[in-house]
Simulated scan of single mutants.
Amino acid sequence: MASVLITGTSKGIGLEAALAFARAGHQVFATMRNPTQSPALAEAAAAEKLPILISKMDVDSDASVHDAIAAILKDHGPIDVLVNNAGVEAVGSVEEVPLSAFRSVMETNYFGVLRCTQAVLPSMRERRSGCIINISSVAGRICNPPLTAYCASKWALEALSEGLAGEMKTFNVRVALVEPGIIDTAMARRIEHPEAKSPYGQSARFAALFEHSLKTPVPPSLVADKILEVADSGTWQLRHPVGPDALGFIQWRTAMTDEDWIDMNAGDDATFFAKLGGSS
Rank of each mutant, 00 (worst) to 15 (best):
K226L: 00
D268A: 15
T170F: 00
V178S: 04
L164K: 09
A207E: 09
V173K: 03
W155K: 05
G234C: 04
A270K: 12
A224N: 01
E179D: 10
L238S: 06
K154Q: 04
T257R: 15
Q202R: 15
P199Y: 10
L157W: 01
A224L: 02
E195R: 15
L228A: 00
V178D: 04
F249L: 01
D184M: 04
K169S: 07
P219M: 02
Q251Y: 10
K226S: 01
V242C: 01
E158I: 03
I227M: 02
Q202L: 14
E259W: 14
P194E: 11
V218H: 03
E162V: 07
M256F: 07
R205P: 02
A186P: 08
M256K: 15
D245S: 07
V223I: 09
A159M: 10
D245C: 09
A152M: 12
R190E: 10
N172L: 03
C151A: 15
V223L: 06
D245K: 02
G181K: 01
Y150P: 05
A165L: 05
A204V: 11
L157V: 06
G234Y: 01
I250W: 08
I191F: 09
E162N: 09
T185V: 05
G201W: 12
L209D: 04
D268G: 15
R190G: 08
I250V: 11
P194K: 13
I191R: 06
F206V: 09
I182H: 05
D268W: 10
K226A: 01
G248T: 12
P244V: 08
L164H: 10
A270W: 08
P217G: 14
E259S: 14
A186D: 13
S213V: 12
I262N: 14
T216R: 05
T254I: 13
L160Q: 04
V218R: 00
L238R: 06
I227P: 01
A208N: 08
V230A: 00
A186I: 10
A266K: 15
K215Q: 10
K154N: 03
V242D: 00
F249S: 02
L164Y: 11
D184A: 08
D245A: 08
A208C: 12
D258R: 15
E167G: 03
H212S: 10
A204M: 12
K215N: 08
P219G: 02
S198N: 13
E195L: 14
P194T: 12
G163V: 13
L222R: 05
D269L: 13
L147D: 11
N172K: 04
D269F: 14
D258A: 15
D260V: 12
M187V: 02
D245E: 13
A156D: 09
G248P: 03
L209C: 06
G248A: 15
V223F: 05
H193Q: 14
S233R: 07
M187L: 09
A156K: 11
A266D: 15
E158N: 05
E179C: 06
A246I: 03
D260L: 13
T254W: 13
E192D: 09
I183M: 03
R174Q: 08
G163C: 13
P220T: 04
A208T: 12
V173R: 00
R189V: 09
D184I: 03
D258Y: 15
G201I: 15
K169L: 06
D263R: 15
A207C: 12
A255F: 07
E192K: 07
V223D: 01
Y150D: 07
I182M: 06
K169Q: 07
K215E: 10
E229S: 05
Y150F: 13
